[in-house]
Amino acid sequence: MTAPSDRKLKVLIAADTYPPDVNGASVFCYRLARALHERGHEVHVIAARNEAGPDSVQYTDEATVHRLQSVAAPTHEYYRIVFPWHARKSIGALLDELRPDVVHVQCHYMIGEAAINEADQRRIRTIATNHFMPENLEPFLPFPQWFRDIVSKNSWRDMGRLMSKTAAVTTPTALAAKTMMEHAGLDDVLPISNGIDSAAYERAPGEVVERAEYPVVLFVGRLAVEKNVDVLIRALQLLDPALNVHLEIVGDGEQRTPLRELVDELGLQDRVHFLGHVSEADLHRAYLRAEVFCQPGTAELQSLVSLEAMSASRPVVLADALALPHLVTDGDNGYLFTPNDPQDLADKLTAVLTASDEERARMGRASHDRAVQHSQDKTIGLFEKLYRGATPAEVRELL
């Protein structure tokens, strides 16, 4: 039965990663919770506790966050593991207490798996959104490749088994949806964008952003293996020295030391700036200060940071991999480059950096035009329809 469109809902978001974790899935969950709260819904989030200790509750501006007892993952800086038996017990008790209208899970691991099974037992409507490909886990599995392949195959199988129990399955892009249907055996996966509030990254009326004395290439994201920031650093070395291009890196992660060592090895200490985690205000200025944004990652299901840069009217140079080709057309709003090819990346960056100011501004406007098509309001509206009982077929007509 479809819930009345004006009735406020009690929504439980089951997230295996949530702030202060810094990654695309975490950011999406936070923005989803905040947007739902702003629309008047009662929002609860289940996530792993970020330090040792028993289950606890946090009251934030966007939601009531229920933190589950967890242990540190031995191969990752901040991911926490919630044991399956504890996740089932705690989530089951929470569902009995809260009696939510809908459970929205964000993947099929740990908390997601327990939430799907416990909600299914109680006949609570459940929506599943997938932010991960099983291959994303490979850098954190200290095993030979043949064993990783087995883990990946089993993970795809589990994804299909679990998410097929839900009322609807979504993922940010059409390519990711196609991949999930092929590898997980799911019948229907809706491509619903993560959504972006473009206004948050646009230059405000009268806003003045001081530009650097040199052209800036910007990267924003986790310093993780699959982000291939090393390829970007090597590309910087291949650029014409006369251009005096500098690279700003916003973010942090387990690859910070190897990347700093690479910068030292290549003698680029004066032209590569590691800014670490920055405030939203500083991130806003970083986008507007840059000449071009680059995302060299090869495991992006959508890339929120690319959409943020595009919202700021920046040309983009993105790896020709997974979902990134959906965001750029060569010569229109930037360029695609051959993944893991520093020379091709250097050539594409040069094409942007040596273009006239007018041409870069035109590419930036084209980026912005694409970004606004991923309206956060539209995304939240589609999820609200699913929460209230709309079928995947009904929502697909609105995509």
Results as ranks from 00 to 15, higher is better:
residue 120 D to M: 03
residue 137 L to Y: 09
residue 121 Q to H: 07
residue 136 N to R: 09
residue 136 N to F: 05
residue 116 I to A: 02
residue 113 E to K: 13
residue 114 A to S: 11
residue 122 R to Q: 08
residue 138 E to S: 13
residue 141 L to M: 15
residue 118 E to I: 03
residue 136 N to Q: 15
residue 134 P to Y: 09
residue 137 L to F: 10
residue 137 L to N: 07
residue 124 I to C: 05
residue 143 F to D: 04
residue 127 I to F: 01
residue 114 A to Y: 03
residue 139 P to Y: 11
residue 127 I to S: 01
residue 112 G to A: 08
residue 129 T to K: 10
residue 119 A to N: 03
residue 141 L to I: 15
residue 129 T to C: 06
residue 128 A to L: 03
residue 122 R to P: 06
residue 114 A to P: 01
residue 145 Q to H: 11
residue 121 Q to I: 08
residue 122 R to W: 08
residue 136 N to D: 15
residue 145 Q to V: 14
residue 133 M to K: 08
residue 134 P to K: 08
residue 119 A to P: 06
residue 126 T to H: 05
residue 112 G to H: 00
residue 134 P to E: 07
residue 132 F to V: 11
residue 122 R to V: 05
residue 129 T to S: 15
residue 128 A to C: 11
residue 144 P to D: 13
residue 139 P to L: 09
residue 120 D to F: 13
residue 135 E to Q: 11
residue 115 A to C: 05
residue 130 N to R: 03
residue 143 F to P: 01
residue 125 R to C: 04
residue 125 R to P: 02
residue 117 N to D: 07
residue 143 F to K: 12
residue 131 H to T: 04
residue 142 P to V: 10
residue 139 P to R: 09
residue 118 E to P: 06
residue 126 T to R: 04
residue 136 N to E: 14
residue 142 P to C: 10
residue 137 L to A: 15
residue 140 F to A: 13
residue 121 Q to V: 13
residue 145 Q to N: 14
residue 130 N to H: 12
residue 137 L to H: 07
residue 143 F to M: 15
residue 124 I to H: 05
residue 138 E to I: 11
residue 112 G to M: 03
residue 114 A to G: 03
residue 145 Q to E: 15
residue 126 T to A: 14
residue 137 L to W: 06
residue 139 P to A: 10
residue 140 F to V: 10
residue 123 R to Y: 06
residue 141 L to H: 08
residue 126 T to P: 05
residue 142 P to L: 09
residue 126 T to V: 10
residue 116 I to W: 02
residue 143 F to Q: 14
residue 144 P to A: 13
residue 115 A to N: 00
residue 115 A to Y: 01
